[in-house]
Design a protein around this nucleic acid. Structure first.
Length: 424
DNA sequence: TCTGGGGTCCTAGGACCC
DNA sequence: TCTGGGGTCCTAGGACCC
């Protein structure tokens, strides 16, 4: 048996945990740049505010109903997430952290427990330790656990917990789940399935498997098997190293000069290098892109991108930054109004592989690598001790392009000065 | 005026190898 | 006039997730 524990309206719940006056009150959280709505409390959902819609299009509705609006505060959400996960980890032998607000727990050893009671206890414990409400779904496969979780969340009389164990319970759950609400079935596949008359998860589970295999490929076939109780997706206890790492942002205002873009790209490149080092990985390829607004209908849209191999796999900020700057020069076009840029590192290998990769100039390279490594270790440890950005590359600068964040809440759990501010 | 950011997996097709 | 069989690697594109 698998349990899926999912935080309810996670970002909105984090904001509320430190602001009890907002209980029962509509709350939403915006994406970076205060652009789109990415989290809504139940009250906000009830007002008909749609997930993903641009804030400026709902502004009147938000004002009319006195909705409390927050910029996204990832320092807070990340820290609250790790508190939730730490609590959950103590409640089951194995945990797989699936996303910032979800985790699968291995419940296979719980045969002598009443799973419903246990799930209620988990829910209460997380609430007590963190202030975050969660829902728990338990079933014989991960896909069914997702369905159980959804049912627990939607039906108030379940008290946030749903266990699917018997074949009747499972059948019932599949009948009340629409095909587009199955985990792994997105927009395109829903359309295809509905056109075939497959409307519910029960229909999908019963569909001819050869047809599913042909049109939804191996991924769809796996989902179907999982719905029929055959577990195909196992617990992933160690997170595999990332295969690509991307840092990109939309700009808070229009950016037109190459110099401003250089500062943005430098910032993104060194952020990618930091992420690489955190993963203990090296990247061998680098992509830089710059773009004008995708909503610009004046005919001046531009999407410039370039990918290149690095001379050798690296995690060195300086090497990556220099390469990114050179590539930017190749795609910059004067006269455009840029709204977004980003850096992607790929061709990622574990750092240990450096010792086994043959080099044309092994002595020179190893001296160089040693020097780079030392410098980066020093840089990272200073930043860890004195705060992000205590030392950085001189070309990094976020003044001109930094995103809007006008309604940021305090970093209640991670920043002394913000905590003091709350007290005062 | 204002529209997010970061990932994964799979398939098909082309280029190339012997 | 006839034209095999078995591979690998890489990339682009399409689907999906949070």
């Amino acid at each position: 048996m698998f349990a899926l524990v999912d935080c309810n309206n996670f970002y909105a719940s984090c904001e509320r945990a430190f602001n009890p006056a907002l209980r029962k009150h509509p709350v939403i959280v915006l994406s970076n740049n205060d652009g789109c709505i990415i989290a809504r409390s139940e009250e906000a959902k009830a007002l008909g505010i749609q997930m993903g819609s641009p804030e400026f299009k709902c502004r009147r509705l938000l004002q009319k109903h006195n909705v409390t609006v927050f910029s996204s505060n990832y320092a807070l959400y990340g820290d609250m997430s790790s508190r939730v996960m730490t609590t959950l980890a103590a409640l089951a032998p194995d945990i797989e952290i699936y996303s910032i607000d979800e985790a699968f727990l291995d419940m296979s050893g719980f045969t002598r427990f009443d799973l419903n009671d246990y799930a209620l206890m988990m829910r209460k414990t997380v609430r007590m330790h963190t202030g975050i409400p969660v829902s728990v779904g338990i079933a014989p496969t991960k896909t069914l656990a997702k369905i159980a979780n959804r049912i627990a969340k939607k039906n108030l009389d379940y008290h946030g917990v749903c266990v699917l164990k018997t074949s009747e319970e499972i059948k019932n759950a599949l009948l009340q789940t629409k095909v587009e609400d199955i985990w792994g079935i997105g927009r395109q596949w829903s359309k295809l399935l509905q056109a075939k008359g497959i409307m519910t998860a029960a229909d999908f589970a019963d569909a001819p498997s050869s047809w599913v295999r042909k049109y939804l490929h191996i991924v769809g076939a796996r989902i179907q098997a999982e719905l029929n109780g055959k577990s195909c997706l196992q617990m992933e206890l160690v997170r595999p190293a990332k295969q690509t790492i991307c840092t990109s942002r939309s700009f808070g205002r229009n950016v037109t000069t190459e110099e401003e873009l250089q500062q943005a790209v430098a910032t993104f490149a060194s952020k990618c290098a930091v992420k690489l080092r955190r993963e203990n990985s090296l990247a061998s390829m680098l992509t830089v892109f710059i773009a004008t607004s995708p909503f610009d209908d004046s005919g001046h849209r531009y999407w410039g991108t370039r990918t290149a191999s690095l001379p050798s796999a690296t995690q060195d900020s300086i090497t990556i930054l220099k390469a990114a700057q050179t590539m930017l020069a190749g795609i910059f076009r004067d006269g455009n109004t840029y709204k977004k840029a980003g850096v992607i590192v790929s061709g990622i290998v574990p750092k240990e592989s450096r010792n086994t990769t043959l080099s044309l100039f092994p002595e020179e390279e190893s001296v160089l690598h040693e020097r780079e490594d030392k410098l980066m270790v020093v840089m990272d440890s200073i930043n860890q001790r004195y705060g992000r950005g205590a030392v950085r590359m001189a070309s990094e600068n976020s003044e001109c392009w930094k995103p809007h964040q006008e309604r940021l809440s305090p970093r209640y759990t991670t920043k002394w000065c913000d905590i003091l501010e709350v007290r005062l």
